[in-house]
Amino acid sequence: MSTTSTSLRAAASAEGEQQQTLAMLLRALKLPAFAAHHEELARRAGQEGWTCPHYLRQLVELELSERRGRRIERLLKASGLSTDKTLATLEQEKLPAKVRRQLPALCEGGFIERAENVLAFGLPGRGKTHVVSAIGHELVQRGYEVLFIPAVLLVQRLLLAKKSLLLEKELRRLDGYDAVIIDDIGYIQQDREEMEVLFTFLAQRYERRSVLITSNLVFSQWDRIFKDAMTTAAAIDRVVHHALILELTGDSYRSEKAKSRETVDKAPRRAPGDE
């Protein structure tokens, strides 16, 4: 075996060891994109004549992009948002004109920075849940922590924490979300304990964190939720003080779809071979 061949093999072995060591160090530093792509980008850098700063910048941008993607995936999984109620599936042409105008700014998330609330009112089937869910999805894409939860389940969660003497801890946990979407607040049972924990939650987030609420009950009917006039007024005051109101009017989406299906079902069917 020639001295040249021996030297080449030794160099290749040393380079391989260096690559393994580098990969270990990058994983220890929690830089998985660096570890996965540094060799591929190094070859490209050699072919295209990149400078060292340019090569490093490409790696950093790739790491940040993949890290952001993983974070959004985690946020979306923890949000409880329905995967099919997004902005892409929202039939915006059926929304009232004012709501359509408000939607882009809400999706940007500025209201969260101002600790404002969003209240969506309308009769059943008007798209309230879809609208706030679509906003929630857009907020997650911008890195905000969002929780979607039906009002009934939120109250049950708070009641369970209270009975276990853990209400304060549960409120702190919920406080970690930039926005909590409370769906169908009008369907809470008429129970004083339920009213108290819901009021406590709303009061705790007042002027600090945002809530998005859907309701088929207008404010004048909220005494059905909070029982007495004083608590109802206090709750409304806290929710409305810094709030954007979406009024979902028009026909019921569900009724329209049911009518469409009925029309299709009643349509005469042609026999095979008919023109």
Rank of each mutant, 00 (worst) to 15 (best):
V99S: 03
L59K: 02
L95Q: 02
A97D: 11
P96H: 03
Q19P: 09
Q141A: 09
A115P: 01
T21W: 10
R142Y: 05
R126L: 11
S13H: 09
T6E: 13
A234W: 01
D274H: 10
A88C: 12
R192E: 06
D178Y: 00
A271S: 15
D274Y: 10
E39V: 15
A45S: 12
F199Q: 03
H242W: 10
I185M: 06
Y206E: 05
N117G: 07
F219I: 09
E108L: 10
D178P: 04
A271R: 10
L56C: 13
L160V: 01
A115N: 05
G250W: 02
Q156T: 04
I135D: 00
R57Y: 09
L62Y: 04
F148E: 00
L244K: 09
R238C: 05
Y144I: 08
S252H: 06
A234M: 07
L212N: 01
L64T: 13
E193F: 02
L76D: 08
G250I: 03
L160M: 09
E145C: 14
R44D: 12
S79T: 04
A234P: 04
A233I: 08
F201H: 00
R57N: 14
D183A: 02
P268R: 05
G186C: 10
A36S: 15
R68D: 15
P96S: 06
K266D: 12
F148N: 02
A234T: 05
D251A: 13
W222H: 04
E91I: 14
L8C: 14
R126T: 13
L248S: 03
R9M: 13
L217H: 07
I225S: 01
D191W: 03
R269G: 11
G250S: 06
P53I: 07
H54I: 11
H137S: 02
C52K: 08
G136M: 03
N216L: 06
L160E: 08
Q156H: 07
V197A: 01
S215P: 03
E138G: 06
D251F: 08
H130W: 01
R101C: 14
L139Y: 02
R68P: 04
L56V: 12
S164D: 14
I72T: 09
Q58I: 10
E15R: 05
L119S: 01
V211F: 02
E17G: 15
Q92G: 10
R100L: 08
L64M: 12
P272T: 08
R43A: 12
T263L: 15
C52N: 13
Q47F: 13
L160P: 02
D228C: 08
S133A: 14
A28L: 12
V152M: 01
F201T: 00
E196G: 05
A78H: 05
S210I: 03
S255E: 11
A105L: 12
